[in-house]
C-alpha cells in the first residue's frame, strides 16, 4: 500500500513509515482486515506505555473535538473513551441520552446533523439499535466510532479482549477460546467472533439453545450447550453477562438454574488449560454467569481488560484521527 521509503522524498529525520485504516469509521470488526486489527493492537501497545508515564498525556489529538454520544447508560465504556481522548489531548464532549434532545422526539439523523454542524472530528456512538452507527456514518463527515450498537457489534471491546489475550499468550492463532453466556443478545460476542476467527483462534460458543443465534455455524465457530465440552483444554474463557430480564422471554427458568448448568465455577475450570485466562466484558453478575472465586481468582484478567481498554481506544482514536483517504504527497 505504501510506497517504498526511498521514493517518498521524506525528511529522513522526521517521518516514519505510514500505514492506516481503510475506513473513516470503526463500525465493526466485520469490516476490518487482519492487518488492520494487528495495526490497532500494535499501536495500542505504544499507547499503553503512555498510560504508565508520570505525565499520562501526549499532544497527538490537540485541537481535535470528540463527541461521546451515548444513548444507553454505560459508565465503563464512556469513561474509558473519555480517558483515552483526554490522554491524547482531544477536546471531549459527553452527550448522554437524558440530556439530549432525543427525548423531545428528535430523530437520530437530526441529532447527528446538528452535532455535525458544530464540526466535531469524531463521534463515539453508543446506541440501543443495531446499525445506528451505519446510519450515522452515512449522514456524517466525522469519523464514527462504534461504542456498542444494539446486538450488533462492540468493536473496541473485542479489540481490548484480543489485546489482553495477546499480552498473556503472545498470540491469538491456535488458541481455544470458549465464550459462554447469552450469545443471542450479545454484541460483544459478535465482535469477538469476527476478531478471533479472523486471527485464527479456535472459537467455541456455549449457552442454552434458547440463547444461541440462528445459523451460528456460519460464523466459523463451534457451538455447544455442554459447558464442560466448551471449557475442556480452553486457553481463554470469556463469560458474557446474563440479563435478569431474559427470564421473562422464557430463555431459561431461573438464575439459579442458569448458574447450576452454565455458571463458571472452580470445579468446571479444572478442565481448562492450567494457564487459562478468565475474561468478562462487565458488568458481572456474580453467582450467575461466574462464581466470585473465579472472578477474583488467579486466572481472572478482568481488571486488566478494563485497563487495556483505554490503550486500545487511544489507538483507535489516534488511527482514525487522520482520516481514511490518502493525501497525495506534497
Amino acid at each position: 500500500m505504501s510506497a517504498p521509503a526511498e521514493t517518498q522524498q521524506r525528511r529522513t529525520d522526521e517521518t516514519p513509515a505510514m500505514t492506516a485504516l481503510r475506513s473513516k469509521d470503526l463500525l465493526g470488526i466485520a469490516e476490518l482486515t487482519t492487518g488492520e486489527i494487528a495495526l490497532i493492537l500494535d499501536t495500542a501497545e505504544a499507547m499503553k506505555e503512555v498510560g504508565e508515564r508520570p505525565i499520562k498525556k501526549v499532544p497527538a489529538l490537540r485541537g481535535k473535538t470528540v463527541v461521546n454520544l451515548f444513548f444507553e447508560p454505560s459508565t465503563r465504556t464512556r469513561t474509558s473513551f473519555e480517558i483515552a481522548e483526554k490522554r491524547l489531548s482531544a477536546d471531549t464532549l459527553n452527550i448522554a441520552v437524558a440530556t439530549s434532545s432525543v427525548v423531545k422526539g428528535e430523530t437520530l439523523a437530526d441529532t447527528a446533523l446538528n452535532l455535525e454542524a458544530m464540526r466535531p472530528d469524531m463521534i463515539v456512538l453508543r446506541h440501543s439499535s443495531s446499525g445506528a452507527c451505519h446510519l450515522l456514518s452515512r449522514i456524517c463527515r466525522s469519523a464514527i466510532i462504534n461504542a456498542g450498537d444494539g446486538m450488533h457489534e462492540h468493536p473496541t471491546q473485542a479489540l481490548l479482549d484480543a489485546f489482553t489475550i495477546r499480552e498473556h499468550k503472545k498470540r491469538l492463532a491456535g488458541l481455544k477460546v470458549a465464550i459462554i453466556g447469552d450469545l443471542l443478545h450479545s454484541r460483544v460476542l459478535r465482535s469477538n467472533i469476527h476478531l478471533l476467527t479472523k486471527m485464527g483462534s479456535d472459537v467455541w460458543v456455549c449457552g442454552p439453545p434458547t440463547l444461541i443465534p440462528a445459523d451460528i455455524g456460519r460464523f466459523g465457530v463451534r457451538a455447544t450447550s455442554a459447558v464442560d465440552e466448551a471449557v475442556t483444554d480452553a486457553d481463554v474463557i470469556m463469560l458474557l453477562r446474563i440479563q435478569l430480564e431474559r427470564m421473562e422471554g422464557a430463555y431459561f427458568p431461573s438464575l439459579r438454574e442458569y448458574f447450576n448448568v452454565f455458571g463458571m465455577t472452580e470445579a468446571r475450570l479444572r478442565r481448562a488449560k492450567p494457564d487459562v485466562m478468565i475474561m468478562h466484558p462487565g458488568p458481572m453478575n456474580r453467582g450467575v454467569e461466574i462464581a466470585s472465586e473465579v472472578a477474583d481468582g488467579p486466572y481472572s484478567v478482568i481488571l486488566e481488560q478494563v485497563a487495556n481498554g483505554v490503550a486500545v481506544r487511544m489507538a483507535v482514536l489516534y488511527l482514525l484521527a487522520g482520516g481514511a483517504e490518502h493525501e497525495a504527497a506534497a
Binding site: S130, G131, G150, M151, H152, R187, P213, A214, D215
Partner: peptide, 21 residues
C-alpha cells in the same frame, strides 16, 4: 414474532437484529 424486524437466520444474527422464523 415478538419484536422481530428481520428473518431469523444468519443475516439477522450477524446484524444483531431480532428475527422471526
Amino acid at each position: 414474532k415478538g419484536d422481530a424486524v428481520a428473518h431469523e437466520g444468519y443475516q439477522a444474527a450477524a446484524l444483531g437484529l431480532p428475527g422471526m422464523p
